[in-house]
Amino acid sequence: MAEPKNEDFLDSLANAEAEELADEMNEISSEDAELDSLRAERDMLKDRFMRALADAENARKRSEKDRREAENYGGSKLARDLLPVFDNMKRALEAATEEQRTVSAALIEGVELTMREMQNVFAKHGIEIIAPQVGDKFDPQLHQAMFEAPVPGTKSGEIIQVAAEGFLLHDRLLRPAQVGVSSMPAS
């Protein structure tokens, strides 16, 4: 009869070891699940961090671009408002006759100095004068055609008269040069 007790004992010992192994397997399995969960959370947080970093870098670049544009083009309204002043001073100098230049030499010199100073300030702030010449090719990116006329001895699309100079602020057009264009048909 001793044998059945041994057999029972061995069975119970085997069952106990099997239960212990099952518990360890469950524990390992739950640790693996927890580890997988932590890895997934880490990956998600890393992804969010990288996206936030990229967003911050994009915001920095965007604000730098906005700052540069504000620096370069922030005064465009003021510059545009000064263009008629420039035009009027230029017309005044062109309208002065030789007799008026002799009689009012100091006044004319003062207006010329003011014009040069205005041109220097324009250059300092990136304002460039577009001064087309008669005979130049019409460029719709820089010129505005005020009229077209058939003028003998010219080609179609040539500038035949300059009514007003144009202006660029850095690379942006403030005002196109106002010109007359030949519409002479090709012969």
Results as ranks from 00 to 15, higher is better:
residue 127 I to L: 05
residue 53 L to C: 09
residue 73 Y to M: 01
residue 87 D to Y: 04
residue 112 E to T: 12
residue 85 V to L: 06
residue 97 T to C: 00
residue 105 A to W: 02
residue 62 R to K: 14
residue 127 I to G: 01
residue 90 K to D: 13
residue 47 D to N: 14
residue 46 K to D: 08
residue 112 E to N: 14
residue 123 A to R: 15
residue 81 D to G: 12
residue 91 R to M: 08
residue 82 L to V: 09
residue 80 R to M: 13
residue 78 L to Q: 08
residue 66 D to R: 09
residue 102 T to H: 10
residue 46 K to V: 10
residue 109 E to C: 02
residue 55 D to Y: 07
residue 75 G to M: 07
residue 121 V to D: 05
residue 68 R to M: 13
residue 101 R to P: 02
residue 46 K to W: 05
residue 99 E to K: 06
residue 109 E to R: 09
residue 50 M to N: 07
residue 101 R to E: 08
residue 106 A to C: 00
residue 45 L to Y: 06
residue 75 G to K: 05
residue 91 R to Q: 06
residue 76 S to K: 05
residue 81 D to P: 03
residue 73 Y to D: 00
residue 115 M to V: 15
residue 64 E to G: 01
residue 94 E to N: 15
residue 63 S to L: 13
residue 47 D to C: 04
residue 52 A to L: 13
residue 75 G to L: 11
residue 103 V to I: 13
residue 127 I to A: 01
residue 65 K to G: 00
residue 102 T to A: 11
residue 98 E to S: 14
residue 63 S to P: 00
residue 98 E to P: 02
residue 97 T to R: 01
residue 62 R to M: 14
residue 82 L to Y: 13
residue 57 E to H: 02
residue 78 L to T: 09
residue 86 F to R: 06
residue 54 A to P: 00
residue 124 K to V: 03
residue 90 K to M: 13
residue 76 S to A: 05
residue 74 G to I: 02
residue 47 D to T: 13
residue 105 A to P: 01
residue 88 N to L: 06
residue 59 A to S: 14
residue 118 M to R: 03
residue 78 L to H: 12
residue 109 E to L: 03
residue 47 D to L: 12
residue 56 A to T: 06
residue 91 R to E: 06
residue 113 L to C: 03
residue 62 R to G: 07
residue 55 D to R: 10
residue 119 Q to W: 09
residue 77 K to T: 09
residue 114 T to K: 11
residue 51 R to E: 10
residue 123 A to F: 08
residue 70 A to S: 07
residue 125 H to G: 05
residue 64 E to D: 07
residue 54 A to R: 12
residue 102 T to Y: 04
residue 49 F to Q: 05
residue 87 D to H: 06
residue 108 I to S: 02
residue 67 R to Y: 15
residue 53 L to F: 12
residue 92 A to R: 03
residue 107 L to D: 08
residue 59 A to I: 15
residue 119 Q to I: 15
